[in-house]
């Protein structure tokens, strides 16, 4: 299978994301200005500071020509994963529910956290067991997941919480310890932690590979 990894001006994790994808299949980096995403089977929107995070994190990237193609791809059921800034972009684009606020501590965070797989049915979690805890790093300043009470209830009721921080490990004040969510169909997933940085024992964990393996399973 072939993963496409988006690159915006200000992206910084697209190379790691492509390396992670290459452990499962082929990977191609797609420039934000391209109107086509080619013949890829899955899309990863990586972390970083797209368009300098001007105005609000993720708010400008959603207007990129490549994002229009990604939105069409997602609508047709294609697997799309947003990591960190990519998660923020998907929320701003309305492809995922909720929004990301500055960390409660107001500090930049960089640490390994445990995240529990809540929904193991999505295109990016089906290689996991429900309830399994993955060890994956977070690194962000704007990662406090928020949804207004009504929307939050709907997210919980429809099983759209994909990941929760393990008990006591919520690093940023996210509501209901939510680390990642999925869309209703389950093909679009976003999370603040960085699975692409947890694909080699050298950096302490290979748990992140499970997300990329999941996409391969979803397409099989």
């Amino acid at each position: 299978m072939k993963f496409g990894v988006l690159r915006f001006p200000g992206s910084c994790d697209e190379v790691d994301a492509a390396h992670a994808c290459e452990r499962i299949g082929d990977a191609e980096i797609i420039w934000h200005g391209d109107e086509s995403i080619g013949d890829v089977d899955a899309i990863v929107i990586p972390g970083g500071f797209s368009y300098g995070d001007y105005l609000r994190v993720g708010s400008i990237a959603r207007f990129a020509p490549a994002m229009e193609a990604v939105a069409r791809f997602a609508q047709e059921g294609g697997p799309v994963l947003g990591i960190c800034n990519g998660f923020q972009v998907l929320c701003e684009a309305g492809m995922l529910p909720g929004a990301l606020l500055p960390n409660r501590s107001l500090r930049f965070l960089c640490r390994q956290v445990g995240i529990e797989v809540v929904d193991a049915g999505s295109a990016w979690t089906r290689a996991c067991e429900p309830g399994e805890v993955l060890s994956i790093p977070v690194k962000h300043t704007t990662g406090c997941f928020f949804a207004p009470p009504e929307q939050l209830e709907a997210i919980e009721a429809s099983g759209q919480v994909a990941f929760r921080y393990a008990p006591g490990e919520n690093p940023n004040g996210s509501v209901n310890d939510i680390a990642g969510v999925r869309n209703e169909a389950g093909n679009v997933v976003g999370l603040m932690p960085h699975p692409e940085h947890a694909v080699d024992e050298l950096t302490g964990s290979v748990d992140g590979l499970r997300l990329f393996e999941s996409a391969a399973l979803a397409l099989a």
């Binding site: 500055p102 107001l106 406090c144």
Partner: peptide, 9 residues
């Protein structure tokens, strides 16, 4: 009602 960490700081 939305937490405003900048305002708090």
């Amino acid at each position: 009602g939305i937490l405003d960490p900048q305002g708090k700081a």
